[in-house]
Design a protein around this nucleic acid. Structure first.
Ligand code: MN
Ligand code: MN
Ligand code: MN
Ligand code: MN
Lengths: 216, 216
DNA sequence: TTCATTGATTAGGTATACCTAACTGTAATA
DNA sequence: TATTACAGTTAGGTATACCTAATCAATGAA
């Protein structure tokens, strides 16, 4: 069994994430997510299929058990890196994604263990996403998008499906971070914004944005 | 100016280190240090020369100012990584070299700053080697090898030029780490061992080993 | 002086991972 | 039905960084 290269890890990670977000896992969606050309992805997908890490049918790409297992390891390292960056090195949650995306390929199993231990085995990354445990067990909370709440509905933010630093900075400035309670005051019709109440303040939130904030 | 690849960084780092240790910086010594074939190094050296990072004469390879500057940045990231690993994540000094050798290529300038800050701007790595500052200033202490001390000579260990984990573990088990005071009790003739006294205990040390321990 | 050793390079090749341009097949549209 | 749009692949090519085998050049020993 040949060692996985950083690129293999990156593909598997992307595929796993797209699938988790219930987005189509096609070569084109992958190409968009990875910011690569379609033929590059097409070629790589074929190689990964040859290595038994995924299967590729008309319906799209699907990780095998081995592919899933590797993906979860990468995601564990990614999310632990993010926690290291925020909790120990003092980064903001909007500054860690890119950094972690490089670190995740440079961390040994020993370092992974030490980070987890030093941080007290955190259960989630700074964005609220679960950190798979050593055995690849990933506890997914049942959540729904904030955008689905009705007027006067309430919920606690569990996680935020967003990687764009500017958006994350904006959300943090409104106090929209995991663990915070949000109440929907009003829902404008025709796909209009939501008026939400967060720790005493009122804000108008676009549907698009609200759909990325998952609450329970 | 194209970005440096991890491999470019690795070559420059090796060249800088060999030169610091006053070892010949030839393609063959480089090949040995980097564990690559001579032709591979020969080729890469030519490329790096073309990029203006080094010059290659009969006397060997010599970094240009730009090459030196990059090398010192890599070494700064390497040594800061080592400190992060030992001081924050609880690694032993014999476990950090390889890990840091990967991390050093995955750390952004921002992360470099945060590590330095979080650690209180350490002056040396766990092996006692100076950490270049942001501007590439590297303070080298005047030291000499323990093997050069005469009988009843004394010195404080400044650093240890050794990367082999087993050797480092051995040295740590004898208490031979930076900051510790060593007295040479006896020097066996004909290149024989030194009998040294460290924190109350006596040990026989081979010349080879003793030459890697630098004292002041 | 000639030969063998050593160091370095040239020649030729591989693997990985990316690209653009061109082509193909399917499915919705006019 | 013919057309267009889109997704996906094939074809052909590049850059990086490695390898082995063969060659070349200088040096010291026979
Ligand atoms: Mn990643
Ligand atoms: Mn995250
Ligand atoms: Mn290195
Ligand atoms: Mn060190």
């Amino acid at each position: 069994m040949e060692a996985d290269t950083p690129r293999t890890e990156e593909y598997l990670e992307s595929i796993y994430k797209l699938q988790q977000e219930h987005r189509p896992v096609t070569t084109s969606s992958l190409a968009e997510h990875l910011k690569l050309s379609a033929p590059s992805v097409s070629e790589m997908v074929k190689k990964l299929e040859g290595k038994g890490l995924l299967s590729h049918t008309e319906k799209g790409v699907c990780l095998t058990e081995e592919g899933k297992s590797i993906a979860k390891k990468v995601i564990r390292r990614h999310r632990l890196s993010e926690r290291l960056l925020t909790d120990i090195l003092g980064f903001k949650w909007d500054e860690v994604h890119e950094e972690a995306c490089r670190l995740e390929h440079a961390i040994s199993p020993e370092m992974e263990d030490r980070i987890a231990e030093s941080l007290g085995n955190p259960k989630t990354c700074p964005h609220g996403h679960p950190i798979p445990d050593k055995d690849g067990v990933l506890v997914k909370e049942k959540v729904r998008p904030l955008s689905e709440l009705k007027a006067s509905g309430k919920g606690v933010i569990v996680n935020v499906f967003e990687e764009d630093p500017n958006m994350l900075k904006y959300l943090a400035s409104l106090g929209l971070i995991p663990g915070v309670c949000v109440r929907v005051e009003e829902v404008a019709p025709f796909g209009g914004p939501l008026i939400v109440c967060v720790s005493g303040s009122r804000y108008a939130l676009g549907r698009e944005v609200a759909s990325k904030i998952k609450v329970k």
